[in-house]
Write a protein that binds this DNA or RNA. Structure first.
Lengths: 108, 108
DNA sequence: TTCGATGATCGACGATCATCGAACATTCGA
DNA sequence: TCGAATGTTCGATGATCGTCGATCATCGAA
């Protein structure tokens, strides 16, 4: 058990215990919707520092926490760096079509 | 022009001028989501008084106003009575699949 | 071991929100 | 004309939210 310390990192909810209202609330904010959009543009992870928005670092951390608590994204810690990614597969089975539909509606 | 007074009634937004965040915000509240759900259950209009929720009448009026401003529903006044209905057709062309997907996600 | 970097958390601020009762406007019926 | 019914608006209240700077905890590198 001398594996590289998993360093517990942030907590993620079980998607079955996340309500629709929670997800909608998380998405119903311009900055957060933009983040989700950005993550959906490309497959896989995104480095924390690549999320380049005109907001304070603590504010970004706050928004990511809300998205995380809503089950929308996954936060992985590697050393001192962080990587985020969409939980799109799980979301699809818990809220079928929701993420794709919302993202599609935004592109207009 | 002696037609039955249209009694201007509440104002409704043009859907093209309604943003996605506005719609999501309107749906991201338990009482309002419930109202939309209720309206979707059956085709056509619903009488104001048929919306039976454990909230004050002024609070219901408030929520209906928010839903109306988000382009989600239509308010028709007939004399002193009011009738509400979903703008589902228009919503479908402005936000394809959104309403149906959200309602479908809730039924779980 | 110490230091710099990275992100989370804290505390505070003003803004917005959901809620209510009261007052109001409009309409129909007596 | 008067009064009851219906729904909107107003004002107030307590809660939540987005935002920030400051601080803290953790980790890798020197």
């Amino acid at each position: 058990m001398t594996s590289r310390s998993v360093s517990k990192g942030p907590e993620h909810p079980v998607l079955d215990e996340v309500g629709l209202v929670t997800v909608l609330s998380a998405l119903a904010e311009p900055t957060r919707l933009r983040i989700v959009c950005m993550l959906a543009e490309r497959e896989g992870e995104r480095a924390w520092k690549d999320i380049d928005l005109p907001i304070a670092q603590s504010t970004l951390s706050h928004h990511l926490k809300i998205l995380r608590n809503a089950g929308l994204l996954l936060n992985r810690t590697e050393g001192t760096r962080c990587f985020v990614s969409l939980r799109d597969q799980e979301l699809e089975s818990r809220f079928p079509g929701l993420l794709e539909t919302v993202l599609n509606c935004r592109d207009r």
